[in-house]
Write a protein that binds this DNA or RNA. Structure first.
Lengths: 234, 234
DNA sequence: CAAATAGTGTCTATGAGACATTATCTG
DNA sequence: CAGATAATGTCTCATAGACACTATTTG
């Protein structure tokens, strides 16, 4: 429920944090910004910031995304990930952070904005170990990566990592990068082209990957993959 | 990220709301409480309440569960569902609510506690249409039900709706109630008994469902169902 | 006995994994 | 030409769906 009368407790701060993922150089990368202010000044962290008083949570996430990275919500996939609110996760006050997951096609390194002193893409694997991020952001990032890995199994979301027009091979390389495995190109092709409304041919072709020209596709209307794309165990 | 200096904004209230589901009479039921105080006094709502200043979010959910329903966290499955924070969702102040999903075996109607003037189990289908719950709780409930439906496909979570010892038929009736479909008892039996570490025979049998005595099982160590239990389309 | 539920087995169709072969580009 | 990538096809094995049959209880 919600309170039966106004809160008898001290106030909470509410923020949004963003796990922004893309695929570059056959690798899953996450966006981090360099903190310009204490605490954790100079350390790398996830982009994010305070929710404004009359602003919805998703609207705050979209605004921070635009402010800190220049990305537009229309170009990317944005969904709520989870909420982190352990007492002590912020050294200054009690802060509850609603984390959002963003999947974006490969884009130029975003221009940092707001409080950020820098912004960069880093392989997600490098951020999971070592290189501690500020606050509990390493944990938030890991949850975001796991969500992305799980979700491309049974949804058509992998295409959110691709440009508007893409080939079957490019889509396959997304799966390979996110899962960190190699997939059989022939079985993959059969699977994705055989799933109704997953891919819509645009008629064009491209040779940007070298080799024989490949058909170009756009995302179709299907949102779920049934049966799912199976993730190899080894 | 989190704030680069203390929040320049008015305070937020932070609450937890609970979607507590069980299976009774072959039907998915949700727990609601009757509000004893304004706003929405006298209306039905999800159990929940304010998070305390030094309390973690999951701890707050477990505490409210115990206070308002008498259920112990150890007897049930509890996981974070999603966070709801639209401005205006609470008429008094800005409140962000972190919703938790609880799956429980069929238990006696819980004793209401705290601010609640009453507590009851209601078929989830009846709560989804009509019978508006207070705040945005109808939406939260629907999200919880959908999470439960999706999650029993690929996890062993359906057993959280069963008592400690249960039969294959009882587990099947859980799936049938949550999904609202009929499943073939023979194929279901083959599927669940063939999944390694899903069910552990206790050696006992029961005839509480009538008919031939059925073997009793306990939950095994498997948490994922791979390949998943397929949900019929019709 | 009938009726209910449990448990096993069999056939078939679908789909994934392994892998051969051909097609069409660049250098 | 070699080497890359794309696209199609074939075989086999695992598994889900449909459904027959037997087992063991209660009334």
């Amino acid at each position: 429920m919600s309170p039966s009368d106004a809160s008898p407790y001290p106030p909470f701060g509410v923020t949004v944090d963003l796990v922004v993922l893309t695929v570059r150089d056959h690798t899953l990368n996450a966006l981090t910004i360099r903190r310009g202010e204490p605490p954790f000044q100079g350390q790398w962290a996830l982009p994010g910031g305070f929710v404004r008083p009359d602003e919805g949570l998703e609207a705050a996430a979209a605004r921070e995304l635009a402010e800190e990275t220049g990305l537009d919500q229309l170009e990317v996939h944005l969904e709520q990930l989870a909420t982190f609110g352990d007492p002590g996760r912020d050294p200054r006050m009690r802060v509850v952070s609603v984390a959002y997951l963003v999947l974006a096609p490969d884009l130029p390194t975003p221009r940092p904005g707001g409080d950020a002193a820098g912004a960069r893409w880093t392989p997600a694997a490098d951020l999971a170990d070592g290189s501690r991020l500020a606050f509990d952001h390493t944990k938030i990032l890991e949850d975001g990566v796991e969500r992305a890995r799980a979700k491309i199994e049974y949804s058509s979301l992998a295409a959110a990592f691709c440009p508007e027009e893409f080939t079957v091979g490019e889509l396959r390389r997304v799966y390979e990068a996110v899962w960190g495995v190699a997939l059989d190109p022939r079985n993959f092709h059969r699977k994705v082209t055989g799933t109704p409304d997953f891919l819509v041919p645009t008629g064009g072709t491209t040779t940007r990957q070298g080799g024989r020209p490949a058909q170009l596709f756009r995302r179709g209307s299907a949102e779920k993959l049934n049966p799912p794309m199976l993730r190899p165990e080894a």
